[in-house]
């Protein structure tokens, strides 16, 4: 199946139907002990001779949808993109927000059985938290999710046995919410104090496409640019709020954080809240109205005096 895809992509590249393939590939890297390792990372292919570099394995973690809104890739003609089922939701949100032109996109849908959890550049040896929910809800014995909106679907599953499941993010969330509020605040103080404001979370997030982020604005300067506690707290809460009803839970922010801040905890909480309060799921449908630009007469107002 992968071979069919490669042939097709080669044809499309030669004919000019697509300008670039953004997918996963492997590269050899030098290790300090003299060995060579293969690292799965995004590859950007614009020559048909390179297409054979494409791979599909459990280490294809990164959400490639992020690149669609970056300036550098807007000029590349039609883009063929390798998309995991969960990443497809991000495409839906971008479509919903009129950020991408679906016609400029050739979606290579992947059949996914879960990817590995990664944190601070380290493979944690078990499935990513987001995958557990996805696999269970499919109800299929093989635990496979298939993209429904792709231009072409790779039905081959990544090789290898099923890795251990690891912990679901929802159980973390449950545990966290049981803590008293002072402890919760102290926990986030502790976490946000580590933040460097390298903005890796922002850069890796497919939803953070603003040309000028509110954190970079100076007139008015709502968010302190300095990476001290106040600035960091405000930055992370505001970012979480800006993602409310938009975050699709791809987990990139947490994966890329070089200081290991568990950002998905907040984002998952907001995903759950949105579903709980308004029955809204972001990325479900590219046609639905954005959460905060709609309302119902009977929205919850029990908290208002």
């Amino acid at each position: 199946m992968m071979d069919d895809l490669k042939t097709r992509l080669k044809e499309m590249l030669t004919s000019g139907a697509i300008g670039m393939v953004i997918g996963y590939g492997q590269k050899e890297i030098y290790m300090a002990d003299g060995s060579r390792e293969y690292r799965t990372c995004p590859v950007f292919l614009s020559r048909d001779t390179e297409i054979d570099r494409l791979v599909w394995n459990r280490h294809c973690v990164q959400n490639l949808v992020t690149y669609l809104t970056k300036e550098e890739y807007k000029e590349s003609g039609k883009i063929a993109l390798m998309v995991k089922p969960c990443d497809l939701k991000a495409i839906h949100v971008l479509e919903q927000e009129k950020q991408i032109d679906r016609k400029r996109l050739f979606i290579i849908g992947l059949t996914c059985k879960g990817v590995m959890a990664e944190k601070m550049g380290i493979d944690e040896g078990h499935l990513a938290g987001k995958c557990i929910k996805c696999l269970d809800s499919s109800g299929k014995s093989s635990a496979v999710c298939t993209p429904d909106e792709a231009d072409i679907v790779i039905e081959t599953l990544p090789d290898g046995d099923m890795p251990p499941k690891g912990k679901d993010i929802s159980s973390d969330l449950e545990g966290f919410e049981k803590m008293p509020s002072e402890k919760r605040w102290a926990f986030w103080q502790n976490q946000f104090l580590k933040c460097l404001r390298c903005y890796a979370c922002r850069s890796a997030c497919p939803m953070c496409y603003c040309e000028q982020c509110i954190c970079d604005m100076s007139r008015p300067q709502w968010i302190d640019k300095s990476p001290h506690l106040k600035g960091n707290f405000l930055f992370h809460i505001v970012r979480a709020f800006h993602l409310t009803g938009r975050c699709v839970g791809c987990g990139e922010c947490e994966r890329v954080c070089p200081m290991g801040i568990p950002l998905m905890l907040i984002n998952q909480k907001m995903i759950d809240t949105v579903k709980d309060l308004y029955g809204y799921e972001s990325g479900k449908d590219p046609e639905q109205a954005p959460l905060l630009s709609q309302f119902k007469m009977d929205d919850d107002q029990s908290f208002i005096k």
Partner: peptide, 9 residues
């Protein structure tokens, strides 16, 4: 530079 997402890590 392809692939660089522009963070400061």
């Amino acid at each position: 530079a392809l692939g660089c997402i522009g963070c400061g890590t």
